[in-house]
Design a protein around this nucleic acid. Structure first.
Lengths: 203, 203
DNA sequence: TCGATCTGTTAATGAGCGTTAACGCATTCC
DNA sequence: GGAATGCGTTAACGCTCATTAACAGATCGA
């Protein structure tokens, strides 16, 4: 009963538009009236759905970090049983790329507005992010045991920087096509990791 | 006459502190009183040195883009005469890494606060950035002629994302040492480019 | 020595903005 | 049918904050 995917609730509309606006002009650069206008209601009407402007940002950032971590755990469990750790690493990369290509505003918020959170919430987000990184580090070192842990952690952060560059790649229309871009990013990420492991192939 | 490097002028102090504060809390998240306090004067005293808060951000962003482009041109000219394009690419990477490691607040501002500029200034910065990217694209395609131009441009943007990840690498103290980090980033950048060129070495 | 300039100060102004108050109208549930 | 609840509205409050005004002490050239 109900349509195939339920119609987006008002809360979801608001979150989506708020994410877009925050990414475009920064948290402090967007007024509540603007967010309201983006969903067809005006200003203070938002307070029927959220405790305040801060609450929207909090929910967005916690949601991002949580869904990244949850997705990674699922991929680790699914692919980890049957296939090897190579496949798990590829699956992690693929998942992160999907996120980076499909939710570009969230990617932008993710590392840009973290400091605008209340201490407790920021701590929560940081903890989720840390777990996500450590999960990658574990898989990476399984594929490349030669990489020491500090180097692995740096490498993972840097590859996130690489994958998260999608907002700078021009408007979705100007991209060579989603699949092509995804493949390019995937190869670059693997190439970067291999380079850390010291597998030089040229000269 | 005067000390080896002239004492930093008041303008320079202000720019430096403003960059740090903008990077930490965002352009709109920092008040002029805070910037003033950071250099020992208070609030409106800044207006003896800058037309306004916007002018500080403008000067910072134009300065960054300009110095990146100027440095790249110089490296292209210097290394381009004697050595081959491989060496030029390495020199470009090295220069960008130096900047990313030494001026982390500026790196942060660079791709975070561009939209806060007046239209004319934003256009200027974008143009400088575009020239910088195109310079990289040219060198990259000289080293790897197999890479088509759109892919090269995407690859360059993504490698910038990788190199600009330094602010996420933890406080300067926690890094394994500047030289080690620089070398790691350099290898990853080269590895990412090589992967785009299709030079698979494993399997 | 006497202005002029440079570089500060504090007080006031005025706009923008998050939030709350007070109110209205459907819908729903007893 | 009527109260409760959900979801809006507009108006008002209060605070923050960039900017300007008005003023003052050094430094310095004529």
């Amino acid at each position: 009963m109900a349509t195939r995917t339920d119609a987006p609730t008002r809360r979801e509309q608001i979150l989506k538009e708020a994410a877009r606006l925050f990414a475009e002009r920064g948290f402090h650069g967007v007024g509540v009236d603007e967010i309201g206008a983006a969903v067809g209601i005006s200003g203070p009407g938002l307070y029927r759905h959220f405790a305040g402007k801060d609450a929207m940002l909090t929910e967005l950032l916690v949601g991002i970090s949580d869904s990244l971590l949850t997705g990674a755990k699922r991929r680790l469990a699914e692919a980890g049983e049957a296939t090897g750790s190579e496949a798990v690493l590829d699956s992690l990369i693929e998942g992160h790329i999907d996120f980076a290509l499909d939710d570009r505003p969230l990617i932008t918020l993710h590392d840009r507005e973290l400091d605008r959170l209340r201490d407790a919430d920021r701590k929560t987000v940081r903890q989720l992010q840390r777990q996500y990184v450590e999960l990658w580090v574990g898989v990476l070192r399984q594929v490349y045991p030669a990489i020491a842990e500090p180097a692995a952690r740096s490498a993972v952060h840097s590859v996130f920087g690489l994958l998260n560059s999608t907002p700078h790649l021009g408007r979705p229309g100007s991209l060579p096509g989603r699949a092509v871009t995804a493949s390019l990013l995937h190869r670059m990420a693997r190439g970067a990791f291999e380079a850390v492991a010291g597998e030089r192939c040229g000269e």
